[in-house]
Amino acid sequence: MTDTQSSRLAAETATGGSIVDVSFTVNGSATSVTVEARRTLSDVIREDCELTGTHLGCEHGVCGACTVLVDGQPSRSCLMLAAQAEGRDITTIEGLAGPDGELHPVQQAMMDAHGFQCAFCSPGFLMSTVALLDENPDPTSEEIREELSGNLCRCTGYQSIVDGVERAVKIMKGGSK
């Protein structure tokens, strides 16, 4: 623990709030952290795990930028305490590409489709899309729009993102990873 971290922890202890030990798996790696109980999963992913690919857009569960997979299910990481992730298996955007850097078909498809612009929302869209296609490998355009309606994008008007999902379906049907 660095001086900064131990100084912070001392101050946090002084608030009277609980400090908890939490263990979970992130992108396949077993992880243990000691944090204030009030820290959300997104706080811990970004600050303690230093995985900054998960973004915070609203912190009250509407924008969807912080969406990660918890035991394979899409979840708002801003609406979970890190403590609730005890023993769970978390996947973030950093965990999508293969170990050799090979892109996940959803990432590849979104690139091919010019899916995003500023891309701040993209981690949430990518994780929601991965979850959707895991559940329903061949969604209709309407199903895609419905499923992604929990994620806000301010740049694109969504069409390129929907197009990206449709391309991902094609890539995944083609059998290539």
């Binding site: 708002r76 979970m80 305490l81 403590a83 609730q84």
Partner: peptide, 26 residues
Amino acid sequence: LAGGQSLIPLMALRMGRPAHVVDLGA
């Protein structure tokens, strides 16, 4: 605290401020 989808945003907005949170998750 069960799923937290109402409680946690209320707390984040500091509109809810329980001194104790009892998590049923375990």
